[in-house]
Structure formats: C-alpha cells, structure tokens
Amino acid sequence: MFGSDRLLDVAIMMIERTHRVENLETSELAAMLAGPEPPLLFDIRTAGEYEKSHIETAIRIEPDIGQDDFETLYAALMAGRDIVLYCSVGQRSSELLERVESARGKTGAKSCRNLRGGIFRWYNEGRPVVDASGTTDDIHGYDPVWAVMVERRR
C-alpha cells in the first residue's frame, strides 16, 4: 500500500513530466524565508484553501489569473526579488508559472520558481502553516482524492 508521502512523490513526478518549470525544494524555501532577503511568495489556491492555512507571508492569487492581470497587480512587488509560487502539490502553481513566465523579464524578478510538492510537502515535513489566528495544525486537503497525500498532525 502507498503511504501519503509515496502518493505525493508520484503526483510530483507526473507534474514535473508535464510542466517544465524550475522547482524549489521546501528546505531551500525555508532557508530563504529565514534569510535577509525572503522571496515573494504566491499561494495559487482558492480562498477557502488559503483561509484554512497557508505559508506565512504568502499572497493568494486566483489560480486562473492571466498574465496581464498578474503583471499589473504584482510587477512592482516582484522587482529584484526571488518569486516562489505554490499550491497544494504543484499542479496549479506550475500552470500559472508557465503562463506568466515572461513576466520575470518585464518585472526584473531575480527568479521565478515553483515549490516542489507544494504546501502538502511543506506541511508533511512539519513546517509551519498559519491561518488568520496564527499558527495552525490544519490544512485544506483540496478534495478527498488529493487529501490522502496529507499526513495529519496529531
């Protein structure tokens, strides 16, 4: 039987075969967030998913935002910064990264990467997530099929 980590690994492998974007490991993101120049972090999930929990400092973006709207809303924030996008496992954030990839050059962002394994990998590794009240041990599973990739905290 497959455990949640193994299922997540399979999902990541399939996403990476379909979407050729640059990925960032969760350990790299953790180090960047703790460093002197943290990246600009975008959460590419629904409002309900984000409200349940997200990585601290993340800005939520609608998964279907177009390149023009993305540039208009966020270009000034992106200048000179590393950009990291994430969703549950990496599918929606990879799709968005492909759509807005040319924005990097227009905005002067240093890098634009996808968080490999998304918030599910981040959460499964015991890294912190927050809601409106602060740190939480809860996470939105997206749907019953994808939720099996989440290791519930006790």
Rank of each mutant, 00 (worst) to 15 (best):
M1I: 10
S4P: 05
D5Y: 11
R6I: 10
L7N: 08
L8V: 05
D9C: 03
D9H: 09
D9P: 01
V10R: 05
M13C: 07
M14D: 13
M14R: 13
E16K: 14
R17M: 13
R17F: 03
R17N: 15
T18K: 06
V21Y: 07
V21C: 14
E22G: 03
N23G: 08
E25D: 15
E25M: 02
T26E: 09
S27W: 09
S27D: 15
S27E: 13
S27N: 12
E28D: 04
A30T: 12
A30L: 12
A30H: 03
A31E: 10
M32H: 09
M32L: 15
A34G: 15
G35R: 05
F42W: 02
I44H: 07
R45W: 06
R45I: 05
T46M: 11
A47Q: 12
A47S: 13
G48M: 12
E49T: 11
K52I: 15
H54M: 06
H54E: 08
E56K: 11
E56R: 12
T57W: 12
T57Y: 07
A58H: 04
A58E: 11
A58V: 03
I59V: 04
I59L: 03
I59A: 00
R60D: 14
R60I: 13
R60E: 06
E62R: 11
E62V: 10
D64M: 10
I65M: 13
G66V: 01
G66L: 03
D68F: 00
D68H: 08
D68E: 15
F70I: 13
F70G: 05
T72C: 00
T72W: 00
L73V: 06
Y74A: 03
A75M: 11
A75F: 02
A75L: 14
A75I: 10
A76F: 06
A76I: 03
A79I: 00
G80N: 13
G80R: 08
I83R: 07
V84A: 07
V84H: 12
L85M: 14
L85V: 07
S88W: 01
S88N: 13
G90S: 09
Q91E: 15
R92Y: 04
S93P: 02
L97G: 01
E98H: 06
E98Q: 13
R99V: 01
R99Y: 00
R99G: 03
V100I: 15
E101C: 00
R104H: 11
T107Y: 01
T107H: 03
G108N: 06
A109P: 09
K110A: 15
C112K: 07
R113T: 08
R113H: 02
R113L: 07
N114R: 04
R116C: 09
G117K: 06
I119R: 02
I119E: 00
F120W: 11
N124F: 05
N124K: 03
R127T: 07
P128M: 04
V130Q: 09
V130R: 06
A132M: 04
S133C: 07
G134E: 14
G134L: 10
G134V: 09
T135W: 06
T135C: 04
T135E: 14
D137K: 09
D137Q: 09
D138P: 00
H140Q: 08
H140W: 12
Y142M: 11
Y142N: 08
D143F: 02
D143H: 15
D143L: 02
V145P: 02
V145E: 12
W146E: 10
A147D: 10
A147E: 11
V148E: 14
M149E: 04
V150A: 15
R153D: 06
R153K: 14
